[in-house]
Design a protein around this nucleic acid. Sequence first.
DNA 1: GTATTGTGTACTATATTCGTATATAATTTA
DNA 2: TAAATTATATACGAATATAGTACACAATAC
Lengths: 193, 193
Amino acid sequence: MTAKTKEIQILETGELLFNKYGVRRVTVEEICQTAGVSKMTFYKYFPNKVDLAKCIIQNLTDDAEQRFNKTMRLAIPFTEKVHLIIEQKIEDNERIGEEFYGDLTGSVPELLNFLQGIGRQAYKRMLDIFKEAQEKGDIRKEIPMEFILYSLNSILDKINDPQLAGIFKDRKEMIKIMVENFFFGIAEKHTDA
Amino acid sequence: MTAKTKEIQILETGELLFNKYGVRRVTVEEICQTAGVSKMTFYKYFPNKVDLAKCIIQNLTDDAEQRFNKTMRLAIPFTEKVHLIIEQKIEDNERIGEEFYGDLTGSVPELLNFLQGIGRQAYKRMLDIFKEAQEKGDIRKEIPMEFILYSLNSILDKINDPQLAGIFKDRKEMIKIMVENFFFGIAEKHTDA
DNA sequence: GTATTGTGTACTATATTCGTATATAATTTA
DNA sequence: TAAATTATATACGAATATAGTACACAATAC
């Protein structure tokens, strides 16, 4: 039927189940049964459940990075680019279900560090892009890069703040608002680049 | 804040979590924490988790029955009534989430019997209504009531058939098609009653 | 053939969950 | 206020579920 390797079957099944129920509520055996794979095969490819989750997140992140780079290389005005990036960020977040994400920060604390690590990498990439944009004149020159740095960190932290989560109807809405506010609050007004 | 009793808080929390994750994946302690209730209080009102699930289903069923009776007492044509009933049935099904329902028939077999019992009660009520409808001329007289009985049973059985589940995109779609087919396949054609 | 890859079962150790006991706090009622 | 009711928090043993491994065997690829 499917010419997929067992490893890919496990990865796809994991993504499906984790998105639906979160990491905590899903067992290794359940993944195996759903994927049509024996437990031994699972442990051949992944040391444990949390590592599978990490692997899935890593794949999703790599995908997101590729799309991000692709968009950044486009020869379009900066503001337009930012719009595309925001839309992509929202799409990216939709690919990790609310339950999956909830477990990352809550019941499986090990994954929180992992995710924060990934966040920091993304943060560095963004910083380079902002520096470049500032040199090009897309971001106001008088804003210290340290402030942008601080603001970005602030956003990354707040994403996991339960108090803030209560203000918005869901996480996606929160991210949308925050990212839009961040970008367009610092963007130099200009109609074309 | 909420003037709700602890028992109602537990019931509402249970409905919420069971609908989202199914009975199997939710623990008693989780219900208690989410409901803001101690475990002792839980066991004061409910002997165990499965019994809570039963209670929730019973409540939903009672609600559905009330709405059903209300609709049946309306002075409108039979076909119109059937349309309303179908819509209600679909709404009823939407109130029990896919995951909740899945656990009822799968991992928590005790609940299957319970649900089938409820199904049989509903079945008796329906039968009376069909008899009345047949006398009134809303259903073709030449159809033996035994066949209607058989067809109804057949539908109730098939709802839990995993093979059939694969044919439709989801359970709701399946029920909609089956109920519509059942009703309008036996309905006497007439423009008004 | 013979590697390779995968399966199925059984098994132990560990972790989770259940349900209860107990002592204490908060609230209601008389 | 005193007594009764209701809820909580913690701890606990028992039952259950899950993790991860060992082993013997089957299917498939080369």
